[in-house]
Design a binder for these strands. Sequence first.
DNA 1: CACCGCATGTAACGTGTTACATGATTCA
DNA 2: TGAATCATGTAACACGTTACATGCGGTG
Lengths: 179, 179
Amino acid sequence: MSIRYGLLALLGRDPMYGYQLRTAFESATGATWPLNIGQVYTTLQRLERDGLVTSTVETDGSGPGDDRRRYRLTDSGEKDLDRWFASPVVRQASSRSELVIKVVMASALPRVDARAVIDAQRAASMLELQALTRAKASADDLEAALVIDSVIFHAEAEIRWLDHCEALLARRPREEHHE
Amino acid sequence: MSIRYGLLALLGRDPMYGYQLRTAFESATGATWPLNIGQVYTTLQRLERDGLVTSTVETDGSGPGDDRRRYRLTDSGEKDLDRWFASPVVRQASSRSELVIKVVMASALPRVDARAVIDAQRAASMLELQALTRAKASADDLEAALVIDSVIFHAEAEIRWLDHCEALLARRPREEHHE
DNA sequence: CACCGCATGTAACGTGTTACATGATTCA
DNA sequence: TGAATCATGTAACACGTTACATGCGGTG
């Protein structure tokens, strides 16, 4: 869903072709989230199938990568885009956190040391946080910085949650491990 | 990946059949993340194909849902599970946040009011936070509470990020909207 | 009898990933 | 000449969702 509407939004600014869309997407998000070019094309095919964009082939014999297919929004696509902007993003059930599952399962399995799992994750997350801080320093525009900030905020939330887990699990009596 | 290893971990406690696994998974995560039963079976098929579990059919003529297929970990599956617990979860590029993309795209599109997008999302997220707080009060065990806490922490991070965005975007000069 | 719970699956589809394949041009 | 960039795609696969289908047994 994110790519679909991301591409739609970019096309709302300017008609573009697939290859340009990848560049534009990565530039808009400050290269924090690389975008696979194959997915751009398949997503564009679906968008065209659904009537949200149309494409025209432009074969002017100038430069490399000649046969370009330029995509533009349809009226229906514009409406859909506006609806997307107007509606809030819902946290999906599909966004089950692998970390949360890991910690919960670790705390329920006697043979696994939940404390070690939490400590290992915190170490990794703190390293990631340092890398993010460095990346943010070299972000060259506001949007790029905002994307990195979002990842930072969630990494911090993750670390706080790990601390929280460790505190609560340490306080738990030994017998509860099985049930 | 989360379901795959979630099921593997549950099988690490006890051999079980598919239907039981769903119940056990939802119970372990406090019903915060409902699990589709169809996915359980397809995931089990893949796990068996990959040699991480084996299954035996048990057709004792007792009760409803007779022909049960009980899954248990193989040695290979146990090793894989231990590896999973020992290695930290990495934040994937695939976890592009739809919200972040929406806000960034809104701030880059002149015809969209980024402020309105942010405000709408914050209102929705705060409502969700209230619902989560209520849900947490009725969580009946520690693991269930931890799962909800994780969602709460991330919802709070999201709201903080929205505030952060609004502050930075308000400060930005008008001309930057196009480039 | 009709519905619910137990138990197993399949099919179709959307989204995302990696990898492969094609062709032209530009630059070292 | 060979590698990088521009430009387009396809194929295979993993994971997730919804919906459909089957069959038994107990309960209202």
